[in-house]
């Protein structure tokens, strides 16, 4: 990559991240949060901000634009979008349930820590006790421990597929969530392609042997993340009636990506 190309891509990425932040900020500034039922704005705002954060972190780290890591983040982005879209169809009830589930998981983790404390080496007990106190304080600041239920099922009572269908995101589920779940859970459909290769020894029945391949950069992963964050921005604009003049990240990408196509970028 020439110096000029390097500068161009740096500038593009910096401007792209600024567009993501500006798009979020303008929408949030136009939003009047419900304060009595604060769960709604906390969950909607938090999930939308999470989506923006993931998009920015991908952009800032070109070294992860490959099949090993990028799909893990993209899967998380599709999950975030489906969760948010489903919550937005019944914000009060679902945002409360979403929070309660999270608090229950935290409570369960604290129970595990407390009950295993006698197994912890002497020198580390103070540290673990401090960790328990900090986590308990976070928990109690939202709902007193005695009132926290623990749900060991799905937080919504539904599968992600059902949520996606109900929220009108079935294609996102089928064509993004499902394929990215392979790398996210290290399943064979990913590992069988990325981390094993056929052995050349004819005596070995063409079995597969492990590899740790070094992959190049594929800007298509960044493009996809721009698509998902844009989809989330469109969703909150529509559902919450929020106007925004900042271009969507995907539009910015299309108009400003400094290479003609992905191959040109890969070959640099």
């Amino acid at each position: 990559m020439t110096d000029e190309q390097s500068k161009n891509i740096d500038k593009f990425l910096s401007d792209y991240c600024n567009i993501i932040v500006a798009g979020f900020k303008e929408r949030w500034d136009n939003y009047i949060p419900e304060i009595y039922h604060n769960e709604i704005s906390e969950v909607i705002g938090g999930l939308a901000a999470r989506q923006a954060t993931l998009a920015i972190e991908i952009a800032r780290n070109p070294g992860i634009w490959n099949g090993h890591i990028a799909p893990i983040i993209l899967r998380c982005m599709t999950d975030t979008h489906i969760t948010l879209a489903w919550i937005l169809d019944s914000p009060l009830e679902r945002s409360k349930e979403y929070i309660r589930f999270g608090l229950g998981q935290e409570k369960l983790f604290i129970e595990y820590l407390q009950n295993e404390i006698d197994q912890i080496p002497d020198g580390e007990i103070d540290e673990v006790e401090q960790l328990i106190e900090i986590r308990k304080a976070w928990l109690n600041s939202q709902l007193l421990e005695w009132a926290i239920e623990i749900n060991i099922g799905s937080w919504s009572g539904k599968s992600t597929r059902e949520m996606a269908i109900e929220a009108g995101c079935e294609s996102l589920y089928k064509f993004a969530y499902v394929p990215f779940s392979g790398p996210a859970h290290s399943m064979w459909q990913h590992v069988g392609i990325y981390n094993v290769i056929q052995c050349n020894n004819p005596l070995h029945k063409q079995h597969k042997i492990p590899i740790i391949p070094s992959l190049g950069i594929e800007p298509d992963y960044l493009y996809r993340s721009s698509k998902y964050v844009s989809r989330t921005y469109i969703l909150i604009s529509e559902k919450l009636d929020l106007k925004c003049d900042v271009p969507l990240p995907i539009i910015f990408f299309d108009n400003n990506f400094p290479f003609q196509n992905s191959n040109e970028a890969i070959n640099c």
Binding site: Y112, N115, D118, W146, A147, E149, I150, N151, I152, G153
Partner: peptide
């Protein structure tokens, strides 16, 4: 004797209900 996780909680389906919330007529 080791304390059980979620002692006193009552399981209802996939949910574990804390002791105080098992009382009838509780309003928060």
């Amino acid at each position: 004797k080791k304390k059980k996780n979620l002692e006193g909680y009552k399981q209802r389906g996939k949910r574990f209900i804390p002791p105080l919330k098992q009382l009838p007529g509780i309003r928060e």
